[in-house]
Design a protein around this nucleic acid. Structure first.
Length: 114
DNA sequence: CGAATGACTCCTT
DNA sequence: CAAGGAGCCATTC
């Protein structure tokens, strides 16, 4: 089966991690957003793929990454996405029918960030 | 190189 | 608003 056994040697994946780590508290970002900010527009899938290969021990706020629908991505075979909801709620994110208001919580780099 | 896969996104029903 | 189909991209076999 296909396993994301990728290494961090790839500058693309490393850049994704850097971008994710820059997401401020109480804010969220979409995969496409991260990809674009990382300098790889259109690689939204690779962002999710990179996060999938990431260890749970990482300091990255992976829970702040959601899809363009304003919901957490339903990962395959795991219910960790449920845990993501709790983490986001802990950040002060408001949910409406399990969906997040991207118009409010979407990370705006250069304005609200450092 | 071709085929398959996946934490995605957009467009149409 | 929810569901289905097509498009895109990188990595792996």
């Amino acid at each position: 089966m296909k396993q994301p056994h990728q290494t961090v040697d790839n500058p693309m994946r490393r850049t994704f991690y850097e971008t994710v780590a820059r997401i401020p508290y109480g804010k969220v970002a979409t995969y496409g957003q991260i990809a674009t900010l990382a300098g790889y527009p259109g690689r939204a899938r690779q962002v999710g793929y990179a996060l999938a290969g990431m260890s749970e021990e990482w300091d990255l706020p992976w829970h702040r990454i959601i899809n363009a629908q304003g919901k957490v991505s339903p990962r395959t075979g795991n219910k960790f996405h449920l845990f993501q909801y709790e983490l986001l709620a802990g950040e002060g994110i408001a949910f409406v029918n399990n969906s997040i208001d991207l118009n409010i919580y979407r990370w705006d780099p250069g304005e609200t960030d450092e």
